[in-house]
């Protein structure tokens, strides 16, 4: 279970340049739940995802995941938490463009230093699941947007995380590929993953397998 309690997040470039991204956010996400965070650009959706993934820390308030207060974790433990619990699909995929598909998918496994056989099995399995196995050795920058997204999903899934987070996952995709992503989501939901998606793409609204849709406006949950 994920709990956000009285979360405030202020981005402060300097004394005179402060932006309140989140203002007193309270949110609970149950295990296996799929929620969609809706809202315009700059509303604070991505900041919520970033806090849940421990990519940043709240200015005040608590982020609790499975009874652990992750907002208080040290930098190293935050990384370990991400590695073991979070699969993050970024808006611009955040792949390393000069690496191959396989090497990008391998990245979350590197710090575990597993056996080569285990690594190979995991990578082959996720590449098959997300239909990217034929591009195993292709350099990522040479792939299409849809292929890059599948690599990003495979990388997010390779550690079999409990929580999958997707930030504007269809922002760079055409409608056909967006529908394909929704199919993948349905599949992940069936695997009982906790999924949180931030989007303003109407394709995600009213989907039968989405448990909740929340509207974020100016750093607050309004619906």
């Amino acid at each position: 279970m994920i709990e956000l309690k009285n979360i405030r997040k202020i981005y402060e470039a300097n004394k005179f340049d402060r932006v309140t991204a989140l203002d007193n956010i309270n949110l609970t996400v149950q295990e296996g739940e799929l929620i969609v965070l809706k809202g315009a650009s700059g509303s604070g959706k991505s900041t919520i995802l970033s806090l849940i993934a421990a990519l940043s820390k709240p200015t005040s308030g608590e982020v609790i995941v499975d009874a652990k207060q992750i907002s208080k974790l040290s930098d190293n433990f935050s990384s370990v938490y991400r590695r073991d619990n979070i699969g993050f699909i970024f808006q611009k995929y955040n792949l390393i463009p000069t690496l191959s598909v396989k090497d990008n998918i391998l990245l979350p496994l590197v710090s575990l230093n597993p056996h080569a056989k285990e690594v190979e099995e995991k990578i082959q399995s996720v590449m098959k699941r997300f239909h990217i196995e034929h591009k195993e050795n292709a350099i990522v920058r040479n792939l299409s947007g849809g292929e890059q997204q599948r690599v990003a999903i495979a990388r997010a899934y390779v550690n079999n995380p409990k929580i999958i987070i997707a930030d504007e996952p269809t922002a760079n995709l055409d409608e056909k590929l967006s529908h394909h992503f929704i199919d993948i989501l349905r599949e992940l939901k069936a695997l009982n993953k906790t999924i949180i998606i931030a989007t303003h793409d109407p394709l995600f609204f009213g989907l039968d397998f989405v448990d909740r849709e929340l509207e974020i406006h100016k750093g607050k949950i309004v619906l």
Binding site: D75, N76, S111
Partner: peptide, 11 residues
């Protein structure tokens, strides 16, 4: 990116 996918500062 490496940090985001779970690499520690040590890694």
């Amino acid at each position: 990116i490496l940090k985001a996918v779970g690499w520690t500062v040590d890694d």
